[in-house]
Structures are given as structure tokens and as C-alpha cells.
Amino acid sequence: MDDKEEENAVLALYPRAHELPPRAPPAHETNFTHYFALDVGGKEFHDQYLYRHGNGLCVVGLAPSHLALRSPSKIKIVDYDVGKKSRADMKASGRRKKDAQVLEENSSLCKVSSEDAEFLVRCCIRGQLLEVNERLTSDPSLLSRKPASQGYIAILMPKPEAWKKAEKSLLTREQYKQQRMQQE
């Protein structure tokens, strides 16, 4: 390695103008494939997203077309205390995710309450519940402000078979856009 090369290495740190897109793709778009479930639980516009990471983990949250996000009334409470045990209580631990709850596709994850309505958010895939978003409990407004990132509902780890099964019923981003754009 001579000095010239060292110098080039320093210059290499600076991106060229053409390498900078006008808007950087958000991490949740580059790192995840986006899927959607419409009318979850048979309720109209209970639309949810499921972001799948290359490692198989799925982040679940409310799609932009979800009734709770479209209604003008504010989201007041996000409550993970649904089912036999609060979803926030059983914590997965260790590399093997010991003690993680295994939830079914239609298991509820949390209850979202606005001024005039209540919505149940469901898993949409069978898998181990790794994490719920505890920030939503203290700051429910995050859900309406940043539904696609900081306002996620939960992170699940499905088995490969569970993913194969769920994939059939989920919509891709293109399909989702088509369906929901047409209706509007």
C-alpha cells in the first residue's frame, strides 16, 4: 500500500453526486419485503401490513388504509393485555427465544382504542412473539404519526412452513396498492 492508494481511500469516502438519490430509501423498505392483509378478522378496512425480513422475521403493524389511521379521531390507548396473558408479559429470552408465546394467525396482538372506536390487531401469521412495541403503550400517538416504522405493533418469528401458508393469503405491495387505490 503506497501513499497514493491511501489518499484514494480517503477520497473514496465521498459519494459522487449521481450516487445520491433525491430521497434515500427508508430502512424499512430496503430491508423488508412488504405484504398486506385486508379486512383482517372480517372487519372492513382493518388492514394490516406484514414486513418480512430476509431472515424470516415479520414486523406487523397497521396499513395506511386501516380505519384507525384514516379516521379523524385520535388514537388514545394501545393495550397489549389481550388473551389469557398480556402480550407484553411473556418475554422471549436467549438465542433460542425461550418462553416466547406462540400465536396463531387470528390471535389478537393488541387492542387499539380511539375516541369513538376499538380495533383488534391480529398476528396474520402463526409464529413466536418476539417483541411488542412498548413505546406505543406510553405514546399511542406514535401509531398514527409513524405507522410504518416506529409505530409497529409487534415482531414475530414464524417457522418456514407457517410463512409458506401465510404467503398465499397475503397481498404484495403492488396488489395492495391496486386494490385500495381502486376503492378510493
Binding site: 465521498y14 431472515n55 429470552s93 436467549g94 427465544k97 418476539l130 418469528m157
Partner: peptide
């Protein structure tokens, strides 16, 4: 991080950012 959560323990790890320096492009 979500990208390694499948193989690492779910934990909160405190880390230190010693310093930051910005440069305009």
C-alpha cells in the same frame, strides 16, 4: 437489531458513541 434478532438474544445493549463529526456534501 431486527436483522440479527433471529440468531441473537433479544436484549437491550447500552453502547457508547464516543464522538461524532459532520461534513457537508
Amino acid at each position: 437489531p431486527v436483522r440479527v434478532l433471529h440468531r441473537r438474544s433479544p436484549l437491550v445493549r447500552p453502547r457508547i458513541i464516543h464522538w461524532m463529526r459532520c461534513e457537508a456534501l
